[in-house]
């Protein structure tokens, strides 16, 4: 994460939603960066703001009710939040590709898979007619769709979930993006298909050297595919570290609880650790640490002051007054 200049740098991003006369803060002061050729995992549970963060990079948060209330998103030096819409449109599907969770709802059901890829090619790369169609077939072959020459004329509903996700990946990659944003790309898929798709994404990253931002709730997927990890809780980054460091030495009480709650396929059964309580809803304005209500270590300071993200060791950042936890014991 500290190599050269990062391709994408998110600084103090803040996204609000105006709902029924109240302001809900979905993302509050999130910062991270992704370098070329690296994969950043963004993990958290539903409602933690991970999807809003990834949509913000594409500037796809609907406005209203959404509003970018502060911060910057620097992509190769340009601030995406102040870019004119026309240039933003060039980036989407061009230099920034995106893969969504549910390929059935993100592919257009009334166009063939080929037509959707051809459209993107002609808009962004100026490839037309037969050349574009041939490139589309080539791409479908690259992502491992069986018999791509005939499948190119299939509609999304004619494909299985895994095949649709392959088409989605072909679409995201068709203009050789520098940055690929994948929002829960394998959540709707079976494990054997998930393994195939993750392999595919790994291979493509090696070939193209793109930066990848992988949004997921699955710590297993993070452990297997990411170089660095950002853990989000209730709209904030609570911990950020290289993957190996995070899993070997989790610091934030939330990260510890999350890791302990994952049932493991490779260890004998036992009672699962839980985090009592649930995520505070975004309309409850919290002064202190957002995790304080569920944290056994929380004291008066935690409830009054929000902890800043601070450096514990090289590249390992934690937003917790109590970290490192050993000292508190």
């Amino acid at each position: 994460m500290n190599d050269a200049a990062p391709l994408l740098e998110v600084r103090h991003l803040q996204v609000d939603f105006h709902v029924g006369g109240t302001v809900q803060r979905a993302v509050q002061g999130v910062s991270f960066s992704v370098a070329r050729g690296r994969t950043l995992g963004v993990v958290g549970e539903s409602g933690c703001g991970k999807s809003v963060t990834s949509l913000s990079i594409m500037r796809l948060v609907p406005q209203p009710p959404g509003q970018y209330a502060g911060g910057q998103i620097l992509f190769d030096g340009d601030d995406l939040l102040s870019l004119p819409e026309r240039r933003m449109r060039d980036l989407r599907g061009g230099r920034i590709g995106m893969i969504f969770q549910e390929p059935m709802t993100s592919l257009n059901p009334v166009y063939t898979c080929g037509a959707q890829i051809v459209e993107s090619l002609s808009v962004h790369s100026g490839l037309k007619g037969k050349a574009a169609r041939e490139r589309a077939i080539e791409l479908l072959d690259l992502v491992g769709l069986p018999s791509p020459a005939s499948r190119v004329d299939d509609y999304p509903h004619q494909l299985s979930g895994g095949q649709r996700q392959r088409v989605m990946i072909a679409l995201a990659l068709c203009n050789d993006p520098d940055l690929l944003i994948a929002d829960e790309p394998t959540t709707a898929l079976d494990v054997t298909i998930q393994a195939q798709i993750l392999d595919l994404m790994g291979n493509l990253r090696e070939r193209t050297g793109a930066a990848v931002m992988l949004v997921t709730h699955d710590l297993g997927v993070v452990a297997q595919t990411c170089d660095d990890v950002v853990v989000m809780y209730a709209g904030r980054v609570v911990e950020q570290a290289p993957t190996a460091a995070l899993f070997a030495d989790p610091q934030h009480p939330y990260t510890v609880g999350l890791m302990a709650a994952v049932p493991r396929i490779d260890a004998a059964a036992g009672r699962l650790a839980t985090i009592p309580g649930s995520v505070p809803p975004p309309w409850i304005e919290a002064k202190g640490c957002r995790f304080a209500s569920r944290c056994p270590l929380a004291d008066t300071r935690c409830r009054a002051e929000s902890p800043p993200l601070r450096d514990l060791s090289a590249g390992h950042h934690v937003a917790c007054w109590k970290a490192p936890i050993e000292a508190a014991a």
Partner: peptide
């Protein structure tokens, strides 16, 4: 099925996709 489940542990690399196809 067992091999394909991603282990929540970066030290234990999951084998490459163990089965192909749908």
């Amino acid at each position: 099925l067992i091999a394909a489940a991603p282990r929540p542990d970066p030290r234990q690399k999951t084998a490459r996709a163990p089965v192909q196809g749908d």
